[in-house]
Design a binder for these strands. Sequence first.
DNA 1: TCCTTATGCCAACACAGTTGACCCTACCTG
DNA 2: CAGGTAGGGTCAACTGTGTTGGCATAAGGA
Lengths: 254, 254
Amino acid sequence: MAKQVVPEPARRRRRPTQQGTVLSERLIVHTALRVLREHGSTGLTARRLGTALGADPSTLYRYFAGMDDLTRAIGEELMGRALDSWSAAGEWRADLRALGLAIHSSYLAHPQAAALTASRVTGRPREIAVDETILGILRTAGFPDVAAVRLYHAFIDLSLAFAALDAGALALAEEARTTDEEMWTSTYARLPAESYPHIAATARLLAARMPHSAYPVVLDTLLDNAAAQLVATRSAATTGDRSARPEAPPAGDS
Amino acid sequence: MAKQVVPEPARRRRRPTQQGTVLSERLIVHTALRVLREHGSTGLTARRLGTALGADPSTLYRYFAGMDDLTRAIGEELMGRALDSWSAAGEWRADLRALGLAIHSSYLAHPQAAALTASRVTGRPREIAVDETILGILRTAGFPDVAAVRLYHAFIDLSLAFAALDAGALALAEEARTTDEEMWTSTYARLPAESYPHIAATARLLAARMPHSAYPVVLDTLLDNAAAQLVATRSAATTGDRSARPEAPPAGDS
DNA sequence: TCCTTATGCCAACACAGTTGACCCTACCTG
DNA sequence: CAGGTAGGGTCAACTGTGTTGGCATAAGGA
């Protein structure tokens, strides 16, 4: 039965599949990424992945508690790759910017996988490591804890949110075998100018801009703001001023 | 057969269902929202929706081309509600801020539906109307077209991205029948302090902050930045200065 | 060498989206 | 007011999904 998944480090025996491949968590995740790229973000199924691995679909349940668990592992892999491709230079602003772009481009390197996973928090080790890294950068830079936490929150949510959104658009375009720009051109071009004067007036600019990500612009805006805050904090520390930005309201629900 | 869906305005006859209900696009979308709230973001199925409507599942295909089409209609409904709950006051910054928050809270009012739809562009009328509105606000405020388009892009993507992310977290918490704060507390509290010193040092602050949305903070940051740009543009216009911010790089892929 | 058990495979389950055929009734036309 | 048309509701069936219980087997420790 597949109720209990054996944790990866405790695995000892590796019996090869009927078709000869020797399975592992790593191999499964990597193959899943390939299947996702080839068949789209909804094309990852237990049976298809089994075939791609040369194994019975049910074998997957020896490694993951279910497809949902596998999905989280894929997200964790992308986050890990981002972290691996990044290294600290010692300057907080540049480091944060590089880390954000690393996360963003790691996800966009696998748009179908990203569309599937980026809006989920996995709580797995490499993801936690990223959180720790960001907080470390901010606190070391001199941000007081409250500000560091607020910035960390904005930073990570912003990065993940844009990764999900941009990946979704990119995956859609790839699956439609067209460029993003063509898509946006046709979207805006067919609108009647009398009903949508502003869109009509800027249609060409829109088609040129939409296929690019707004993430760098927004990220820089956030970092500019943070830098200004830091300066204010430093000068306030010498005069004893303790004013802070007003808190944001909680996310509403009804 | 269900190959061709009859467009809504062209519908004439409304035969009641065996159980007596008279279907319509509106009724189906509204019922879908209820089903989503009750059964979670993955709980919307053709059969379940059929039962909730008192109709055969296959009847849905008389109104929508498929579950995917229905999903887009749900997203369109949420966007429409945001637009309806908003009204222009005439001041661009306040208007944009209100519109952003309206979109965000309209989606968060139905977290399960939002998690399902917010990362998709529908291209339907009400969504286009929102685009036109945003561009109108910016251009009327005096932003040159290039800046208006860049801001529009950042604004709408930011809002949708956060709607998707926050809705996902909220839906997860609701389905786990727990508060977000409990979730985050348990997530951070069980980490060893020696491996994650920065998280450990700020655990209580994190648990208090994470259940709130970072969207208002980031949105305000973006609008601050835009306001500063506008002032610079105006003074530049009098001196003939035409310097602009450097362009953002395109979204990478590999 | 033998024993244990991790791990692969098979068959089967419930449930998903979707379609084709059928039929009935609401409405338009005369 | 009668008749014809077709919109739209229903039924049954198809394929494909995630998932599980039972079984077989070979890897590795003793």
